[in-house]
Design a protein around this nucleic acid. Structure first.
Length: 270
DNA sequence: ACTCCTTTGAAGTTC
DNA sequence: GAACTTCAAAGGAGT
C-alpha cells in the first residue's frame, strides 16, 4: 500500500540510518568511455547529493509542499545527518538546491498524524496524481478489493540515470538557448552535448546517479525495476520493424552499422 | 486521455 | 552472456 511504503521508508530513515553499502546491489560498471574517469567507489556514502545537484529551474514541488516545508523530516536529528551536506564531487555542479526539491528524493507523505505529509514524487499513483482515493466501504468482494488495491497501487519510479540527471539540469538552458520547446529535439541536442562533455564532467553525473540509486534502494528496499516493467503500453511491433529500414535514432543507427555507441556519429544521424 | 518522439543508461527479459 | 526491450524526464504533436 502507498502509505505503507512511504511509512516504512520514513521509518527506515528515522530509525535506521543507511548502512554503508551492506546488502546493496552490485555496483554497476561505468560506461566504457568513462571508465578511466569514474571515481573510485569506496564505501558508499549517502551524501546529500541533491543538495548539490539542481536545475536552475527545478521541478516545482507540489503546491502543498511549499507550505509544509517547515515540517520536513530533514529537520529531524536523524535525517539531518542522513542528508547533511558533504563535500562530494557534486559540489562542483553549477547549481545548488535542496534535495527537497528533487522530485525523486522528496520524502513520502501519508505518515499518519505527521504534519510533514510530503508526497514523494517518485511514488506516483497510476492516475499520475498524488491524491488518494477515499477508502471505499461499499460492498465488495475481497478479490475485487484486492484487484482494486493492486490497480491503485502507486508506482515507485526508477531512479534517474546519469544522462537523465544531466538532461534535467540542462534542459532549461537548451530551451533558452535554442528557443525550442519540443522535448524530442531538445533531447537530441542534449544527447550530443552529453557526448561532448569531458569525462570528468560526465563523472559528476555518474556519481550522482550512483548515489541516487543507493538512496532509492534505502527508501524502497524491496523495489525492483521489474515492478514497472511492461506497465507502459508497448510500442507496436510495426514501429520496430519499420526501424529496421529506417536508421531512426543515432543510437539505433550506430548499432545497425556497428559503430561505437559512445563516440561515433553515423552519417544519416549527424 | 493517451501515445509517440528523442536521448542515454540501468536493469529487466529472451534466447 | 549477448541481444533485445522497457522505463526513467520532458512537453509538443498527433490520434
Amino acid at each position: 500500500m502507498y502509505k505503507d511504503t512511504v511509512y516504512s521508508a520514513f521509518n527506515l530513515l528515522m530509525h535506521y540510518p543507511p548502512p554503508s553499502g551492506a546488502g546493496q546491489h552490485p555496483q554497476p560498471q561505468p560506461p566504457l568511455h568513462n571508465k578511466t574517469s569514474q571515481p573510485a567507489h569506496g564505501v558508499p556514502q549517502l551524501s546529500p547529493l541533491y543538495e548539490h545537484f539542481s536545475s536552475p529551474h527545478p521541478t516545482p514541488a507540489p503546491a502543498d509542499i511549499s507550505q509544509k516545508q517547515v515540517h520536513r523530516p530533514l529537520q529531524t536529528p536523524d535525517l539531518s545527518g542522513f542528508y547533511s551536506l558533504t563535500s562530494g564531487s557534486m559540489g562542483q555542479l553549477p547549481h545548488t538546491v535542496s534535495w527537497f526539491t528533487h522530485p525523486s528524493l522528496m520524502l513520502g507523505s501519508g505518515v499518519p498524524g505527521h504534519p510533514a505529509a510530503i508526497p514523494h514524487p517518485a511514488i506516483v499513483p497510476p492516475s499520475g496524481k498524488q491524491e488518494l482515493q477515499p477508502y471505499d466501504r461499499t460492498l465488495k468482494t475481497q478479490a475485487e478489493s484486492k484487484a482494486e488495491k493492486e490497480a491503485k497501487k502507486p508506482t515507485i519510479k526508477k531512479p534517474l540515470n546519469a544522462f537523465m540527471l544531466y538532461m534535467k539540469e540542462m534542459r532549461a538552458k537548451v530551451i533558452a538557448e535554442c528557443t525550442l520547446k519540443e522535448s524530442a529535439a531538445i533531447n537530441q541536442i542534449l544527447g550530443r552535448r552529453w557526448h561532448a562533455l569531458s569525462r570528468e564532467e560526465q563523472a559528476k553525473y555518474y556519481e550522482l546517479a550512483r548515489k541516487e540509486r543507493q538512496l532509492h534502494m534505502q527508501l524502497y528496499p524491496g523495489w525492483s525495476a521489474r515492478d514497472n516493467y511492461g506497465k507502459k503500453k508497448r510500442r507496436s511491433r510495426e514501429k520496430h520493424q519499420e526501424s529496421n529500414t529506417d536508421p531512426g535514432s543515432p543510437k539505433k543507427c550506430r548499432a545497425r552499422f556497428g559503430l561505437n555507441q559512445q563516440t561515433d556519429w553515423c552519417g544519416p544521424c549527424r
